[in-house]
Design a protein around this nucleic acid. Structure first.
Lengths: 101, 101
DNA sequence: TTAAATATATCGGTTGTCCTATATGTAATT
DNA sequence: AATTACATATAGGACAACCGATATATTTAA
């Protein structure tokens, strides 16, 4: 993933994962449920796990296995990327939100 | 463009175009400048015009040429799609935005 | 101990967001 | 008339968000 701070909104799914993990450690299933609460549908396994793999390979997220579940959490680098992405996100879409309520 | 109301955030660029056009009619260049104000970078012609073409083919936007500029505006159908997309967007990312400020 | 449920993972394919580079048509300038 | 600038457009390619289908562990239940 890139998170250029320019004109690129291809990272929304990974962005949301990073944001959720900034709140608390979660398993893949928990992440899927949190996204479902917001988007209305659970991301499929074929969407979620490749994204988590990308985030791990980019050293933004790490995972600790215990039994059959893996608990994912942000790395220091992930926290920095999230902060930049948040700034970009709010600057890009802040007025859309303010407008909507 | 699809605007399924499920788990799909691939339509952010088109979404932002629709939202901008809901404020006022604009040419392609004006749309690009408005996006630049928010995202920090002007979308390139190879990004913008294919997206506008898609929106026209989906009957969400129409364009009226006058000289060398085309003035784009929302169709009734575009307005309906935007309203649905706004609902989805706010439900998906409302807490991210509230959190950030 | 087999069966079912849970959690993670990969594969192949489609679509949309991006790019650089190039092309076309229109208006203003020289 | 030729040049420059502006606005729109297309071609070809990369990558990320999606899907359905399938596979592999691990735990729990029958």
């Amino acid at each position: 993933m890139r998170y250029k701070y320019g004109c690129d909104m291809r990272g929304m799914f990974s962005f949301q994962i990073l944001w959720l993990l900034s709140k608390r450690k979660m398993s893949g299933e928990e992440i899927a449920r949190e996204i479902a609460k917001r988007r209305g549908e659970k991301p499929k396994a074929g969407t979620l796990y490749p994204a988590l793999k990308e985030l791990r390979m980019a050293n933004m997220v790490n995972g600790v296995r215990s039994g059959r579940t893996i608990t994912y959490s942000l790395t220091a680098h992930g926290r920095i990327c999230l902060r930049h992405a948040l700034t970009y996100f709010c600057r890009s879409f802040g007025d859309v939100f303010n407008d909507a309520k």
